[in-house]
């Protein structure tokens, strides 16, 4: 039972510099055909050939879900990261051929919600752009509260305001503006669902505030993709395929497994979905569990690892892969 959706061969149709930090990319199919429709909140994994190193990064789709002529993503440049976003910013140009995964939605809207209350921070705006378009088309109710560092870095603010008018509220950190979450949550109609996407601290704040005010967990949704962290190189033995590999400092364990020609399952590549869960046969050392998937008890026993984001320090790590 492997997840075997066909990949989508695409051409870069357009690259737009949204602001100093963010670029938007539009992809169309190489054969000119239609893209699959998707649901707001879905992401695709973009495959990059970064001068011989294969990188695969997940990005939320932000084009209109009913637009089957192309997909759009926004990429924020991360100078300290492993290089995926830098590659997208520096090397990806119109006309270039790339490969995308089939969309997957790990951050769907709750179809029963009477109202969708969306809380975005920074680049976390992207899934909401697609979700708002979908809710609007279905005649649903929503409200967006979007914090950005400064007016210059407020990606898509003008466009969203022009389109959705008073349903869009923008807050500038630089001007000391902050979402008054308590007042906001107090004034919501029954049946409202909350969605948060943005920096870790913001997501934790939304969950904690809602919980303290008595909101049920199932009415509060969030998405946080972790970028695979960089670290020190380490050795791993893959028992099932009989290979020994070295994971480079700016490579994830999953990428190293793939580079060795070993098939491994994944969906989010960000420690959230659980798909890449792998059994650990031997661990002489310390696993740096960076995922949101395994429970604390599971992490403590070191019998499982999520290779998309987790790393290792020690003398021997043997995986059932």
């Amino acid at each position: 039972m492997s997840v075997g959706a066909p990949k989508i061969p695409v051409v870069v149709a357009e690259v737009v510099e949204v602001n100093d930090l963010i670029k938007r990319f539009r992809f169309v199919r190489r054969d000119g055909g239609a893209m699959p429709v998707f649901s707001g909140g879905a992401h695709v994994v973009v495959e990059m050939d970064d001068h011989g190193v294969r990188r695969m990064n997940p990005y939320s789709l932000m084009s209109h879900p009913a637009d089957t002529m192309g997909y759009e993503i926004s990429v924020r440049r991360d100078e300290a990261g492993r290089g995926g976003s830098l590659y997208m910013h520096r090397h990806v140009k119109p006309g270039m051929e790339m490969v995308l995964s089939q969309p997957v939605n790990l951050f769907p809207l709750d179809a029963r919600a009477k109202k969708h209350l969306m809380i975005a921070g920074g680049i976390g705006i992207t899934p909401f752009v697609a979700q708002m378009a979908q809710v609007e088309a279905m005649g649903g109710r929503f409200e967006l509260h979007y914090s950005v560092r400064s007016p210059v870095l407020g990606a898509y603010v003008e466009h969203l305001k022009a389109h959705y008018g008073p349903r869009v509220h923008v807050y500038h950190d630089e001007h000391g503006e902050k979402i008054d979450l308590q007042t906001l949550l107090k004034s919501q109609p029954l049946g409202t669902h909350i969605y948060a996407c943005g920096p870790k601290g913001m997501i934790a704040w939304v969950h904690a505030t809602a919980k303290a005010m008595g909101w049920p967990d199932r009415a509060v949704h969030s998405e946080e993709f972790l970028a695979p962290p960089v670290g020190q190189a380490f050795e791993v033995q893959l028992a099932a395929s009989g290979k020994s590999i070295t994971v480079q400092p700016n490579q994830s364990l999953l990428e190293a497994i793939e580079a060795a020609g070993v098939e491994a399952p994944y969906l989010c590549r960000g420690g959230a979905c659980g798909q890449c869960e792998t059994n650990v046969l031997r661990c002489d050392g310390h696993i740096e569990h960076n995922d949101h998937w395994l429970t604390d008890e599971q992490k403590a026993t070191n019998t499982k690892i999520m290779p998309c984001v987790s790393r290792f320090r020690g003398t021997a790590l043997i995986l059932d892969r």
Binding site: M1, V3, P6, Q102, V104, C273, G274
Partner: peptide, 13 residues
């Protein structure tokens, strides 16, 4: 159930 929650569009079983 664990498998189905991750079922992908375009890859029916």
């Amino acid at each position: 159930l664990k498998f189905l929650l991750k079922l992908q569009h375009g890859a029916p079983v």
